[in-house]
């Protein structure tokens, strides 16, 4: 509808007098993006293939990435962390998303605000909250020590657990939104019909809601994975030296070791991980679209 309306745009009679204007309007944006995005990215990619002293092309930095042990470990930690965040965001977000998609009472607005408000609070505030909760003398350890459940503080911070908890909290609103959109697209009559025909709540969820919301589950996992893999502040504060991921290792390479080519290689590794995941998402989506258009083709 929209594209149709735009296509009917009348040919402007006075277009010739202003023909240069659209180009002039576009050029500042293109200039800014080339100067501060395209050029730096190109330079970084070039640097990752360049020998430091002789400036000749080389793969030695990539070789080092694959052989020094630490870097590949960091890459795997990043992938593992992002996968855990993707799963926990989707599992935790599902009940909230289902409620938001189906509820009609005024509680819906309350839950909606509660689910999305953290997004306005910024990453630092939330990470700080988790630091207070999880650190050795923090809220949880304090509580457990008082109750006598444990005799020494549990190691809850500066590890994988803390980072996954913090990132799950950061990403959860996005997971909830994409799950909610997908569940809203399921005809509630299907659930009602199944229930009338005697299916239990569990059977309805397992055989109707879950299978039909698979696209939402996939997109929630993809969003969560990419956001987690590229996050910096949360892994830096909650993981620290105990749990280094690519993002924090890149930071160290630039500002402590001042090894720019190697930092570029790590940045390339992170970028390729993200592009790989996005590619999987695009492939999945286009496959689903084509399948959907085939199956509904006869009716339209």
């Amino acid at each position: 509808m929209n594209s149709l309306a735009l296509d009917l745009h009348p040919p402007a009679r006075r277009r010739r007098t202003l023909a240069w204007f659209p180009l002039a309007a576009l050029s500042p944006s293109l200039m800014v993006l080339s100067a501060f995005f395209a050029l730096p990215m190109g330079m970084m990619i070039g640097m990752s293939f360049t020998q430091t002293e002789t400036f000749s092309p080389t793969l030695e930095h990539y070789q080092r990435f694959f052989t020094d042990g630490l870097s590949i470990a960091g890459f795997c930690r990043t992938a593992l962390m992002s996968l855990l965040v993707a799963v926990s965001v989707t599992v935790l977000g599902y009940p909230v998303a289902y409620f938001l998609a189906r509820a009609t009472t005024r509680w819906r607005a309350v839950v909606f605000a509660l689910a999305l408000a953290p997004e306005l609070a910024g990453v630092v505030l939330r990470t700080y909250g988790w630091l207070i909760i999880l650190e050795d003398r923090g809220f949880i350890n304090d509580l457990l020590l008082h109750l006598g459940v444990i005799s020494s503080p549990l190691p809850l911070s500066k590890n994988l657990f803390a980072v996954v908890v913090g990132l799950t909290h950061v990403v959860l609103p996005f997971g909830i939104l994409s799950l909610m959109t997908s569940i809203q697209g399921i005809d509630p009559n299907l659930e009602r019909a199944a229930q009338m025909l005697g299916a239990s709540r569990l059977a309805v969820i397992r055989t109707i809601v879950l299978p039909l919301s698979v696209p939402g589950i996939v997109s929630s996992m993809l969003i969560a994975f990419t956001m987690a893999a590229s996050a910096y502040a949360t892994p830096a504060l909650l993981g620290g030296a105990g749990f280094k991921v690519l993002a924090t290792m890149i930071y160290e390479q630039v500002l402590f070791y001042i090894d720019w080519p190697f930092a570029s290689v790590m940045a390339m590794a992170l970028l390729l991980m993200m592009l790989g995941i996005s590619f999987v998402g695009v492939r999945y989506e286009s496959r689903r679209r084509s399948r959907a258009s085939v199956s509904s083709g006869g009716e339209r």
């Binding site: 730096p40 970084m44 590229s230 630039v254 940045a267």
Partner: peptide, 27 residues
């Protein structure tokens, strides 16, 4: 094509953009 160019920075993680800019300025 121009729109994809304008939106292309979105597909690069922020930390990678940050590294690229700081290396570029230093270089």
């Amino acid at each position: 094509a121009l729109m994809s160019c304008l939106l292309s920075p979105l597909s690069v993680p922020q930390i990678v953009k940050g590294v690229a800019i700081v290396l570029f300025l230093s270089m």
